[in-house]
Amino acid sequence: MVEGNRWLIYALGGGWGHLNRAIALARQAPHPVEILVNSPYATAVETVLEDPHITLRMLPADLSAATAPTYVQAWISQPANCLIVDTFPRGLVGELADILPKLQLPRILIHRDLNPNYIAAKNITAFVRQHYDQILIPGEPSAPLAHLPQAHGTDPWLLREADELSRVRDQVRDCWQLPSDRPVIIICATGRPDEAQRFGELLGAIAATFPHCAVRCLAHHRPPNCHPAQWISHWPGMDVLQLADLVVGGAGYNLTYECKALQIPLIALPLDRQYDRQDRRAAQHTFPVRQTSDCLSTITQRLTQWRPRPAIPRYTNGNHAALRAIMTVTRANHRPAPRG
């Protein structure tokens, strides 16, 4: 292994969370960062990611769970001075379990909440204790590995600083024709096609029930039942969310903590995921609902308190603290290259 001034971030996993969390961290990095991703949204993000220091390395689409490990091993073998693994300590398909014990690099785990059945089934706690130099926990202090000695909590990692949002606020409002004199409700449609369809149906119900509101759908692909005039495709979504009075969506990592930072009520329909416990996150940070009728009644309650939102609230982006913690590890935990 040859060291280089570069960070590698392993961010395999479906959806937005792994991709956005990795980019939020990479934007602070003092070195070039290469992020291994397989999010279906990565290609679109790459076209608008205006940071020459960040490279998105897409996992080839034709790789399977059986063939991906070879690719991952080759990717990790490139010169770097730090490996940061998002969410899956053993790798998404367990491939890191064979690679990490032989790796001569500081290893840092980004730890969000995980299903405890997975923790038990794959003996994750012992593996992380042995093979990671540091565990960074952005925003979820009750995550199952938080008790390990190398754990370090930070605020959630966000893609935008408050001042960055301020700079684009008017531009985004004009671009997507979002009013300031009446409530704006944004439905954030993510997930599988069947889930996107449900959000599309929800959009129709909300628009019909609250005609005095501006109802929009923030989504990479326009869901069924969503009129083109209601559809917003924009990355990072936080640029648009800042203009919302209410947000409706799942309870994934990004949306939950972006709304929390912006102090916008999130009415969440937790999505069923294999590793992520959205139910739990929703219960802690959102107004969780199950049915469309519950969603509509919750919106009604929130709108009774509506008044034009003031300026963007101040919030702490945890990626700064994460950067300091990583730098401490990379300096102190220098692992010499193997001999021979």
């Binding site: 395999l12 996993g13 479906g14 959806g15 969370g17 792994h18 397989n38 996992l59 790789l63 399977s64 769970a65 991906a68 969410t87 053993r90 790798g91 998404l92 398909v93 367990g94 059945n117 997975y118 038990a120 089934a121 794959k122 994934g252 995921r273 294999q274 590793y275 992520d276």
Partner: peptide, 12 residues
């Protein structure tokens, strides 16, 4: 059922 972990590249 836990044998299903680490089998899916699209999981999250």
């Amino acid at each position: 059922s836990d044998q299903d972990y680490e089998m899916d590249l699209d999981a999250s």
